[in-house]
């Protein structure tokens, strides 16, 4: 597993350096605009896209076919992709919370917001992973884009219908969305539990798909 993770990180090293520049640029924009969510947004995209990139590289080099001739089981290859997601999740939290905390000075809020966004991003990734194992990285990326679209549309529909019924008073849609998301810990708890359950189900489905995959 250590070898697979090392390979993942070394193979993604060149992408990482570009992403660091992106995060820095958005951090500067965030500082100038006093908006700590800028960095969290970029980190969410990274968390959703890097596992897809990793699978895409493996497909390009036919790495899996080669790796399976080594002392590496099919299960371990699946595990390595989920571990990569967890590593990115951890990285998201460290960078996101640090940036938001330093900018806003409210560390509890920073942890709450970033944990929620990271959990949702991780949820998207773990839903997309079995699709990537089955149909390839390209289609898996489409699944992520579609999921983001569906989630965003659903949120917008809820807000608009709430506003039509007179909720929220003069609040803007964005403020209402933030208000709903940050209303209390219940939402975060639900998000974490849903993500955890989805991760377990997704992992089992991925193992099943991968065990039958032919190269």
């Amino acid at each position: 597993m250590k070898g697979l993770l090392r390979k993942e990180l070394l193979a993604l090293k060149s992408t990482f350096s570009i992403l660091v520049i992106f995060v820095l640029v958005y951090a500067i924009i965030g500082v100038v605009g006093d908006n700590s969510s800028m960095v969290s947004g970029v980190l969410a995209v990274i968390l959703m896209m890097l596992p897809a990139n990793s699978i895409s590289y493996d497909e390009f080099y036919h790495w899996d076919k080669y790796a399976l001739t080594m002392p590496i089981s099919r299960q371990k290859i699946v595990q390595s992709k989920y571990l990569l997601c967890f590593l990115l999740f951890g990285l998201f939290l460290v960078v996101g919370v640090t940036f938001s905390g330093l900018l806003d000075g409210n560390w509890a809020d920073a942890l709450f917001t970033n944990l929620l966004v990271a959990a949702m991003s991780l949820l998207m990734s773990v839903i997309a992973l079995p699709c990537m194992f089955k149909w390839g990285a390209q289609r898996g990326r489409l699944v992520i884009v579609m999921l983001c679209g569906v989630a965003g549309s659903w949120m917008a529909i809820v807000i608009i219908s709430l506003k039509a019924r007179g909720f929220g008073g003069d609040m803007r849609v964005g403020e209402m969305m933030q208000g709903i998301l940050l209303s209390d810990g219940i939402l975060l708890g639900v998000a974490l539990i849903v993500t955890a359950i989805a991760t377990i189900i997704s992992y089992r489905i991925s193992c099943n798909i991968y065990s039958k995959k032919q190269f």
Binding site: R6, L10, K13, Y61, T69, P71
Partner: peptide, 30 residues
């Protein structure tokens, strides 16, 4: 599998790596 060496018709090691990194990865795998 640790005692099988396989060479396919193409090199399937990601080409952004170098020999030193391949050595480190294989050390962790085998």
């Amino acid at each position: 599998n640790a005692h099988i060496g396989v060479v396919m018709d193409e090199c399937h090691i990601p080409d952004m790596l170098n020999v030193r990194q391949v050595n480190q990865i294989m050390q962790d795998i085998y």
